[in-house]
Amino acid sequence: MRACVVHGAGDLRVEDRDPVPPGHGEIAVSTAFGGICGSDLHYYHRGSVGDFRLREPMVLGHEVVGHVAATGPDVDGPGVGTPVAIHPATPCGACPECAGNRRNVCARSRYLGSAARTPHVQGGFIQHLVVPADQVRPLPTGLDLRRAVVAEPLAVALHAVHRAGDVAGRRVLVTGAGPIGCLTVAALKNAGAAEIVVTDLLDEPLAIAAAVGATSTVRADGADPDQPDIAIEASGSAAGLSTCVRTVARRGTVVLLGLLPPGETGFLGNIVVTREIEMLGAFRFDREFDEALSLLGEGLHVDPVLTHTFPLAEAAAAFDIAGNRALASKVLLDLTDPR
């Protein structure tokens, strides 16, 4: 079988790997599509994501869908051939965070395609993937695999919206119109936000944000948007964070969603103090994955985010296009096509 493996910054290879049969409590999935995430791009371009640095070759990918290929002994799960999505996280189940229903911040969690731990957790851009059975989710009836692949980033967006509190009838700013930012727009619209303002440096991603529900878009190199009640920082940049803090209403809420560069990032702390701004982090997700699949099955409008699909053999070209925000939003690898 073939897999997309990063060996270091700028070193991406499509390699042969030996298939592994599922063991007790495991399911093997014949993967169909994998979505390239911003973290995959960081590993490819920089060799790191935030403070997580590559120390060994790693199969990338954590946005994966496919069909059940085989089940291990004693597994009571979906049958062979069932179309499924993969929840990429394996929390430890024993820590205070897991016990307190905060499994997304479990310090011992394993996440597909992550260098947070050594040995690294190998990812899902591989044609035959074996995972614990409880990470496999049958797709809602009628949901095709190509749309289902955005369940993972949509779950990230849903978690950020949940962290913001009740957004119904509120004015919300989203800084950054990448795939996560645009899916955050879709989640906000579904949750009843009255106004959704999106900023970005490029017109092309702003057009996608408008297509999925933004009520207005603003170039980030222009004038600041008017005071939102809530600001969600989805660009992963110090400039985006500054915009959120500077423009949010007094006693408003800022949710940090995008991962900032490694190390310390300065921010307008005195404004946070004097305006009593509430700042919250949003990291990954937990049960929002199932919510995302349900919303996609109900027809949540996300199709404009899906812009390109490449065969696995053209992974390097796919990653290069995915890094060009003027051309692409969510780029998929077709893992059934190993050409």
Rank of each mutant, 00 (worst) to 15 (best):
R2Y: 05
H7E: 13
A9P: 02
G10K: 14
D11E: 00
E15D: 13
D18I: 13
P21R: 12
H24W: 07
A32P: 01
F33H: 07
G35N: 11
I36Q: 04
I36S: 08
S39R: 14
Y43P: 02
V49H: 12
G50S: 08
L54V: 10
L54W: 03
M58A: 04
M58F: 01
A69L: 15
A69M: 12
A70P: 03
T71M: 14
G72L: 12
D74P: 00
V80S: 11
V84R: 08
I86Y: 00
P88W: 14
A94F: 08
A94V: 15
C98M: 13
R103T: 06
R110K: 15
G113L: 06
R117S: 01
T118M: 10
P119Y: 06
V121F: 12
Q122I: 14
G124I: 12
F125S: 02
I126T: 15
Q127T: 13
H128Q: 13
L129Y: 07
V130Q: 07
P132W: 10
Q135G: 09
P138H: 09
L139C: 02
T141M: 09
D144Y: 10
R147W: 01
A151D: 08
A157S: 13
H159Y: 00
A160W: 01
R163H: 03
R163M: 10
A164C: 02
D166P: 05
A168D: 09
V172T: 04
G176S: 01
A177D: 01
P179R: 03
A186V: 15
L188A: 07
N190S: 10
A194Y: 09
D200R: 10
D203R: 11
L206V: 13
L206R: 15
A210N: 07
R219Y: 00
D221R: 10
G222Y: 00
A223W: 00
A223H: 01
D224E: 01
I230F: 04
I230S: 03
I230G: 01
A234T: 01
S235K: 15
G236M: 06
S237T: 15
A238Y: 02
A239Q: 13
R246Q: 11
T247E: 00
V248E: 00
T253C: 15
V254M: 09
G258R: 04
L259T: 08
L259A: 03
E264K: 11
G266S: 03
L268A: 11
N270V: 07
N270Q: 12
I271M: 13
E276P: 06
E278A: 15
F285P: 05
S294L: 13
L296C: 07
D303E: 14
T307S: 10
P311V: 06
P311I: 06
A315P: 05
A318V: 09
N324G: 04
L327T: 14
L332C: 09
L332W: 04
R339W: 06
